[in-house]
């Protein structure tokens, strides 16, 4: 009996040592926020809607892509599929359809009236826009706005293919996001070599 317990102890310690030594190398656990900000904390990020500026460029990184980088959402399949679900649940789909537009402009094309960076899209959802985009400030928690913003980018092929949604269980409206030719997202997330023809 004793020997059995000792053997189990040895195996456990061994496993712990192995995990400590090799764990971080083989697997990095995805960081998930389990208590994201509540609805009331919806605030627009610091951004600008155009790169045109009077005089010299401002020092420091581009506020749209630099600083605290929320682009995590668009590299994460769970966030993108949550964004896809919310895009229907919050009735975005009623105006923008499955990206082709209708009452609202298309989102799957390469025209971005109010900016294509994830922070621009976040701001568009939260602030609303004057020609008919409603303001969702105080209506959707920030975490979910980021997820929707990331999904909106996936509609135009601006997210990594491995993370983009594949075929949904619905009427086939269009080719799935994951099948789009991938465009390198702004901010250089993917080195040019990765997007070049193999």
């Amino acid at each position: 009996m004793r020997a059995g317990i000792f053997a189990a102890f040895v195996i456990l310690v061994g496993a712990a040592v192995l995990l400590l030594v090799f764990g971080p190398i083989t697997y990095v656990r995805e960081a998930r926020e389990f208590r994201p900000d509540p609805v009331a904390a919806t605030a627009p990020p610091e951004i600008r809607m155009t790169d045109l500026q009077p005089g010299l460029p401002l020092p420091g990184p581009n506020p749209n892509t630099g600083g605290e980088n929320p682009s995590w959402y668009e590299r994460n399949a769970v966030a993108l599929s949550e964004g896809q679900r919310l895009f229907s649940a919050m009735n975005c789909v009623g105006c923008h359809s499955h990206g082709g537009g209708g009452m609202g402009p298309p989102l799957m094309d390469d025209k971005w009236i109010y900016g294509s960076d994830i922070k621009n899209i976040y701001a568009t959802i939260v602030e609303g826009r004057p020609n008919g985009m409603p303001s969702f400030r105080g209506k959707i928690p920030p975490e979910q706005v980021w997820q929707i913003a990331a999904y909106v980018r996936s509609m135009a092929g601006l997210t990594p293919k491995q993370a983009s949604p594949s075929r949904p269980d619905h009427l086939q409206a269009k080719a799935p996001e994951a099948s789009y030719p991938e465009q390198p997202p702004a901010g250089g997330l993917i080195p040019p070599s990765a997007t070049a023809p193999q």
């Binding site: 359809s97 499955h98 990206g99 082709g100 209708g102 298309p106 799957m108």
Partner: peptide, 20 residues
């Protein structure tokens, strides 16, 4: 005619409530 008037994207068959 929303596909022309509002520059909708015909790759999405359901655009404009399916008219596109």
């Amino acid at each position: 005619g929303a596909i022309v008037a509002a520059d909708l994207d015909a790759r999405d068959a359901t655009a404009a409530l399916g008219f596109v």
